[in-house]
Design a protein around this nucleic acid. Sequence first.
RNA 1: GCGAAUGUGGCGGAACUGGUAGACGCACUGGACUUAGGAUCCAGUGGGGUAACCCGUGGGAGUUCGAGUCUCCCCAUUCGCACCA
Length: 1007
Amino acid sequence: MNPRYSPDQVERKAQADWERADAYRARDDDTRRPKFYCLSMFPYPSGKLHMGHVRNYTIGDAIARYRRMRGFNVLQPMGWDAFGLPAENAAMANRVPPAAWTYDNIAYMKKQLKSLGFAIDWSRELATCKPDYYKWNQWFFLRMLEKGLAYKKTGVVNWDPVDQTVLANEQVIDGRGWRTGALVEKREIPMYYLRITAYAQELLDDLAKLPEWPERVRAMQANWIGKSVGVRFAFRYEQIASANLLPLSQVNEHARERVSARPLLPPGEGTGMRDEAVFASRERDGVRDVGAAPRSNERAVAMRNAAGTSPSPSVPLPPGEGREEKLWVFTTRADTIMGVTFCAVAAEHPLATHAARNNPALADFIEECKRGTVIEADLATMEKKGMPTGLSVTHPLTGESVPVWVGNYVLMGYGDGAVMGVPAHDKRDWDFAVRNSLPIRRVIASKQLLEDRYRAIDELEKENISIDREKITDVRYIEDFVFKKNISKQAERAINTLHSQLIHEGCFIDYGVVINSGEKYDGLDYEAAIDAIAADLKAKGLGDKQVQWRLRDWGISRQRYWGCPIPIVHCPSCGDVPVPDDQLPVVLPEDCVPDGTGNPLAKRADFVDCTCSRCGKPAKRETDTMDTFVDSSWYYARFCGTDNATAMVDQRVDYWMPVDQYIGGIEHAILHLLYSRFWTKVMRDFGLVKYDEPFTRLLTQGMVLNDIYFRKPESGRITYYNPADVDVTCDDKGNRVGAVLRADGRAVEWDGLGTMSKSKNNGVDPQQLIEQYGADTARLFVIFTSPPEHTLEWSDSGVEGSSRFLKRLWSFAEESKTFVDPGLIAATIDWSQTDDELKIARREIHLALKQANNDFAKLQFNTVVSAAMKMLNALEGVPGASRSAQGVKRQPADKMVVTEGLNMLLRLLAPITPHVTHVLWQELGFGDDIARAPWPVHDETALARDVIEMVVQVNGKLRGKVSVPADASEESVRQAALANATIAHHVGAKPVRKVIVVPGKLVNVVV
RNA sequence: GCGAAUGUGGCGGAACUGGUAGACGCACUGGACUUAGGAUCCAGUGGGGUAACCCGUGGGAGUUCGAGUCUCCCCAUUCGCACCA
């Protein structure tokens, strides 16, 4: 045995053993053991592993290895999320086909994963760019098409006019194409969508079935799905005619013209939208103008066509031809409807478009809004700008005329693209009204305000002062009118109270009681008011309660080469024809080198030209590929049977699925996880699987951060320096006082912590770490430094610390080797003859193990490592084992405690640092394979004590300690505590009022 | 603006159901061994005070014999976002 820890040697030996034994192959149906499916999110093969991968897979591996030792039949597979944009970018940069680049990366990263010693069943490896995988994307897509769960409609894309290509959001920088710098245009093109909205209700409800997901992920998903229950109603606009406006049917016509002025059909797409009737979708109004028609329309259709469960049906559709003279809005606060003082419509709304025809200023404003940001956070804080359209509409309940404005804070994409404006009870409307001097009408009051109002009215009426009872809650009315009256002190006081309450409440957005809304509604609370108002609107045929969703259907078409081909053929006579199942997969050619212009697939005649399976005439293949989120929406199910060439999944999913533990980054909290949940439900409804949810438990690990250092010269660009090249200087107490670049010794500035990135030059290459310290140190560091869900701050000295611990472990084991005797067990020892010191050490070891087991179950691995360190500290303290005790004669009890302690410690650490524990296990003669050893459990009898130390408090403050026999009675403990000199000093002459004894822990003397 | 979380030494972080705050590690200080050490080992290390003691878990109230932990009100930071009407 090497006296010095040599990670390189140890890891090579351990990995060779595992390879030879095929140690981590998962058995497909082991009836003797419970199954455990442990999955980490598969990586995109970007080139090499980054620290985030190392962290993710180490956490997953620790869980998998722990479960295996706990007796589970564990499946831990690995694959590659291999389609995607970076491969195309690399292709352009290096003139290499994306396929070759991707496969090279996979080979390299696989080697890296193996060098980290993960217990992965590599026989199940898959890559989403292989036809045997993506064939099933295509097959499943066709099934969804048949059921109407996939359909075609137009969508907006970024278009680079120079390269004649579609750009991803990521490729648009400040509104310009990343390669050409050309101003990016918005274009409408036909795309395929998946009806995730048909599952909105179930996706929302089933979050309750995921109690072991982090609360915040469930909250984010619920917000994303965004169910709101409210009232959708209409303002009529008879006045349109008098304002000499076109009927809305013509307005829509106008909007359509504007969009079709620059049509775009992708190459190979000749038939337009009419052919969609071929497929199961019955959506009639497939042609959609930018912003010209509301979204809830689609949703209503989606709900009707959906297989499986459906959200509740929606109310009548927004304006179409024949029903045009209504402005529809949606609100969750119908109780405030009598407080409407304006309406605001989105810039893209047909009314806005129409009003702008003869109003250049308004047209300019609309253009400005359309160019503006659509990022929520920016919009939320920006100025609420608006412009009147000159139109007005009629309030459905009061019949009052309400002005219509164009507002930059109204989104066309949500609801009907129009809102009612109730400034008194909505912050945005308030801001908008204040800015544009629109009236504010208060219609909801808090209880306090109600009281103040009654009192003020009473007082004024006593003095026979006539006032407007409605306007009394208007600050301006009070100031302009009431304050100017000659009133008694008492009345003035009441008015003052009311006035300051009004000022205090300002824009009152809470629920309250309805006021100033007419006899019928006044006094009602939120729910009653909404019921009454919705009923009245319904009776007039002007609205009803409605459920509104935020979730939109999932557009999966990508105008990109490196992705799964959408299995459709465009035939001049038959239209869009699905590829028959027996012709699947539609194989993507792997030798294309995209150059950034146009669509590379469209240039490949051997791909595009084909024959129509219906009529046998020449036809063109669809050249769009699928969103890579499709690939990752079901890969976890495929791992159960990657070898099945005839079916997407087979009965093995019934054994393995659902995934028991899923581990990945928080950045996937919404899209990937939501799409996977959706996909699962569709697979279930197609009879492919039996479970409702794919991931039982979810762990979202935090990001990996590092210091950021930079210099900013007086002129020129900021330069970032890698923290590895920077020395930090500290004062005597360890406070950071400065940092210098090692190369030139001059100061650099510290810019806090940030995620490891190329742009900030603060990355750490895992490969270097492994080469310098070994995989076990890397694993130990990422596990120990932070709890899994927190961010992890990189620290070179932290790595040193982890390495130091493993060195200590190794040398302790090495020194103990001569007297470790696996035959010694606790029962052979006469504990009454052993030193207290030894018993205390053994107790510490078992106590630490107990804590570690608690923490392991909670997935709090950092404290598991703490416990392991405590165990080693205690072992080093065993009298006969310490280095300083060379020559001391070792008692059997010493040997037993060291043997037992090492044996438990190695097993405890095996999931985290598998190599070093594997080798030491063998070296110490404990067995061949530590991974097959049972999980260590502490011995309760080792925790027992004869004498315990109890804390004594006086008035809750720590004042002393007393040692008492473990079985001492409460009374004797009390006596011992009061007899203690320090305690007596603190009690002094004060009378003891009460003594609280917490058995085994403390005594509190109350004086 | 909305949603979610988090605030504990110089730093990462411990503290099970309210019961010794700061485990474990890093950094730092002193010492040992060394030609040397950025290796290793030993000791110390929340702040203040000579001391007895006092103060300490973002701030402020409260409940309790006792609060990092429970309740209420503030403040700050981080993350997500598609103005969710």
